[in-house]
């Protein structure tokens, strides 16, 4: 157990710091989880309770809530409130469509670009890499006025495409950089063998590189998906109502709709977050190495 600590006191001090860090990091999540589960009486109690007291197995199974697609499962009252809310349901569905399509487009065009940038020596390689990187420094708000005017002319306001188009732009740097790094680490032998057998670059890319890169493409796709899932500025600017508004735009409005129903607001926040937290925990090793690659390679 003692991995090179000089004294037990060192070990205790070290783990105390680690535990404080873990506690502070998880506290807001756990606290809001508690808010979403307890009864209103407990929610408004002063001083606040530290451990949830009004949550019992019985209260958890008390109601059944209709989820998207008619699946029914036991859930606490506040979650029922948000799952029944038609605007929230539409928001979740819109988020899924927008994030899904953004991810597919980014992976398709980003992986081709990344392959060329990783494998082929051509003149525009470095300028294009810098240009793509420059997008991640770009403040999104700088283009909302021109996009709003142009999309208005094109009749795109309040459609999925109004959000997907800028989302693709801002997710692309991450997609391209992660895939360039991934393709570079892949051995070239198999592609070369395919080329000797008469395959051209497209065939080598689609038949050899892509199948070999599935783990890297999945991680990259996941990060792109998270970006689009969380995006707010463009969605808030370019959509108007539940026809296209994703959940990130709908949820802040709950402050007005459910003024003092803090439990429902907490539940809505969790519904939008928990899928991501689970995905991220599941893929954490890959995500961390993907995200920190930029910091160590410069």
């Amino acid at each position: 157990m003692n991995k090179g600590f000089k004294t037990p006191a060192h070990a205790i001090g070290f783990y105390t710091v680690v535990l404080i860090f873990a506690f502070l990091t998880l506290f807001p999540l756990l606290w809001v989880l508690k808010m979403s589960l307890v009864s209103d009486t407990e929610l408004f109690a002063s001083p606040p309770t530290f451990w949830p007291e009004s949550v019992t197995l019985k209260s958890l199974t008390a109601g059944k809530c209709p989820l998207v697609g008619g699946i029914k499962f036991p859930c606490p009252e506040n979650f029922q409130t948000v799952f029944i809310d038609p605007i929230f349901r539409a928001g979740l569905a819109n988020t899924l469509v927008i994030a899904g399509i953004t991810t597919i487009i980014c992976l398709t065009i980003g992986s081709m670009a990344a392959y060329a940038l990783a494998r082929i020596e051509f003149f525009a390689r470095r300028p294009v890499l810098s240009l793509v990187l420059a997008i991640s420094f770009f403040p999104a708000v700088a283009i909302i006025a021109p996009l709003f005017l142009q999309f208005q002319k094109a009749g795109l306001i309040n459609t999925y495409w109004a959000v997907i188009i800028p989302d693709v732009l801002f997710a692309l740097p991450l997609t391209v950089y992660l895939l360039v790094a991934y393709f570079r680490e892949l051995p070239e032998d198999l592609e070369d063998a395919a080329k000797v057998d008469g395959a051209n670059i497209w065939q080598a890319f689609f038949r050899v590189t892509v199948p070999l890169s599935i783990p890297g493409i999945v991680t990259t796709g996941l990060l792109t998906f998270i970006y689009a899932w969380n995006e707010f500025l463009f969605a808030n600017t370019l959509t108007l109502d539940q026809q296209a508004q994703p959940a990130t735009v709908v949820i802040p409005q709950f402050a007005t709709t459910y003024t003092t129903d803090y439990g429902a607001q907490a539940a809505a926040a969790l519904v939008l977050t928990l899928p991501l937290v689970i995905l991220v925990l599941f893929f954490q090793r890959k995500i961390v190495s993907g995200l920190t690659a930029g910091a160590t390679k410069g």
């Binding site: 807001p28 707010f232 939008l272 977050t273 991220v280």
Partner: peptide, 10 residues
């Protein structure tokens, strides 16, 4: 990595 995954809005 948990807080990083949170939507900023949330």
């Amino acid at each position: 990595i948990v807080p990083w995954a949170f939507p900023t809005v949330v």
